[in-house]
Design a protein around this nucleic acid. Structure first.
Lengths: 351, 351
DNA sequence: TTGTAGGCGTTATCAA
DNA sequence: TTGATAACGCCTACAA
């Protein structure tokens, strides 16, 4: 930890001196009531006469009093903050969710504490540990690699909301997106356009998202009576460079394809670039569809057809679920249904 | 605030019961010393005999003691957290910086508190207010619209690091990137490729970045003896759709151009799409260069030439500067120099 | 309905 | 070098 110094100490002391440091006690004095009464009014934790309530509210306003969350945390056990374990804070996919979470929490006076899990089990549990030591009131986990059991164990300590996975626990609520249905939508779209040789680029199979999207791909083929061809399935890792490499591998194989379904937009972007390098044009030679509807997908050349997941809403819903949990209720939210977005990277197969 | 409930209270109480709640007092007891001694050892705030130190360290290890930051915050005035005012948490540009900040702070046991300013003065000052009420030890501000005076005022309350702007204050450190030099690099590159009719797409002029990049553009033209043509300057807003619209406006004008310098990559991306819609190909008909070297720039079709700003490093440097401030020292960091990255969206002008 | 008193887990002050 | 003791700002039985 940074060494202690005069400058710092002075700075910090300054904040607790006149001007800034209006305390609950001051409010009480000003309003002519006891501190407990002020506290009760602030927290609505008991009935108080209207007269005193008005006096206190006036005092709060005049003094510009803002309760100190640190003190509240120590005394009441609630810190009015909720931890959020995100995988990559700069991810185009999860970034939106964080925004939704922040927006929703702030309406209730709660502050999110974002920590990165970096898709690594060790980082994730370290992240949760710091959050717990910070005494957050709840924890929201965005997917990740932590075993279910670990998550469930943590949920005995704090209310938890886990998104992108499905599991149960004491004060644990989770909801996933309907990846399977979304994938079916994508593949069905390709089929509707006359494609039958449809390649699939899988994401990192350690993610549920990845396996579910593969299942959706298989579902759709089966429904259309198309025999799945293992030669047309490549392994990717949900990143752009991974998408490029996977595409290169795919092109080396015997099997040909007229369309490619990439399990996420980032890989689709990589794939398009890689196809271009190989002299294949999208959508003229190959139709490409992604998944997620990341911002960038709109502005690619060509703009990418994809499956829309309103990530912002997912963040919002996760935060709302957390609010319910904090109120002792079991949340009743469900992920919004995925929707097909047709842009210009897919087209009807020319005969 | 969420209402209080039995469930929540139970959950929180659980955390303060056996198992989890090893306190400093327990450690003291176990080690046979006073709490103050334990505190001193933990903080290195005074000399302690080796004998007791060892005893305490052993006790800490055996009990798995983790100091409670909330209590430390209340007692010592330091919360071991630093606030970060970011504009858009999901921005491809700033997202990277956040990661750099997080990484650097965590090495010192500090936690970042991210809040969004949404490029709005009101949101930004609200954000800073929340951070102050949370008693963060310092605040890092990424650019933004808050007037210098406001920032300087806040810096009397907490140590501050402001990046992307240049200003001075009591315990305030700021550093900007060298936008002007970066812009010169970009334009010089175009000139080196034989271009002389070079259009410029400005960013939101409320940002210093925007004005500085414009200056760099003018510098480079002047050095090359090219008369600037106001017809070739369009106003954008640093976003993709803004880049599209600005390009459309540019194309309606009389003046023609063989190259376009967009003040950031997001607008460059929009511009390329818009040019494409107008039947112009990049780089065959128009060379386009951006600024920032955002991830997406690498994977566009064509991959975009740009000016590299290592945003991650900038975040890291900001955090390091904050650490210095917290130690009472004036930071001595400077932003890394911008570097030209030539990819495939620019090419030599055909005669 | 209201006030008093004690405590939350640490740090800081002041003696010893 | 060490240990009491008093804060830090708020919450919450408990008592009135």
């Amino acid at each position: 930890m940074p060494a202690d110094t005069p400058l710092l100490r002075a700075a910090l002391k300054a904040r607790s001196e006149p001007g800034g440091a209006v305390t609950l006690g001051h409010v009480a004095q000003r309003a002519g009531v006891s501190p407990s009464t002020v506290s009760r009014i602030l927290n609505g934790s008991a009935k108080v006469s209207d007269e005193k309530r008005r006096a206190v509210e006036a005092a709060v306003a005049e003094l510009g009093f803002r309760p100190n969350p640190v003190a509240r945390g120590l005394a009441g056990g609630r810190t009015f903050s909720v931890g959020v374990v995100t995988q990559t804070i700069s991810s185009p996919f999860y970034g939106e969710a964080l925004f939704g979470i922040e927006k929703t929490l702030e309406q209730q006076g709660l502050v999110p504490l974002f920590v990165s899990g970096n898709w690594q089990e060790s980082d994730e549990s370290k992240a949760i540990a710091t959050l717990l030591s910070r005494r957050v009131d709840g924890v929201i986990v965005l997917a990740g690699r932590l075993p279910d059991a670990a998550l469930q164990a943590f949920s005995r300590e704090v209310p938890m909301v886990v998104i992108g996975r499905r599991l149960q626990g004491p004060q644990l609520f989770s909801f996933g997106f309907d990846n399977r249905a979304g994938a079916r939508l994508a593949v069905q779209h390709l089929i509707d356009q006359g494609h039958r040789r449809i390649a699939f680029m899988a994401g990192d199979m350690a993610h549920h998202d990845a396996t579910e999207r593969l299942e959706g791909y298989r579902d759709a083929l089966e429904r259309a009576g198309i025999a799945p061809n293992p030669q047309l399935i490549v392994q990717g890792d949900f990143t752009e460079p991974g998408g490029m490499q996977a595409t290169a591998r795919l092109l080396q194989r015997e099997a040909s394809f007229s369309a490619l379904f990439a399990s996420n937009d980032q890989m689709a972007i990589g794939a398009i670039l890689s196809l271009h390098r190989a002299g294949l044009r999208v959508p003229d030679d190959v139709s490409v569809i992604g998944f997620d509807d990341v911002q960038a997908a709109r502005y690619m050349l060509p703009p990418i057809s994809t499956v829309h997941m309103s990530i912002f809403d997912i963040g919002r819903l996760a935060a709302e679920a957390m609010l319910s949990l904090l109120q002792g209720a079991m949340p009743a939210v469900a992920a919004p249904a995925p929707a097909l977005v047709v842009r210009e990277s897919t087209r009807r197969l020319a005969h």
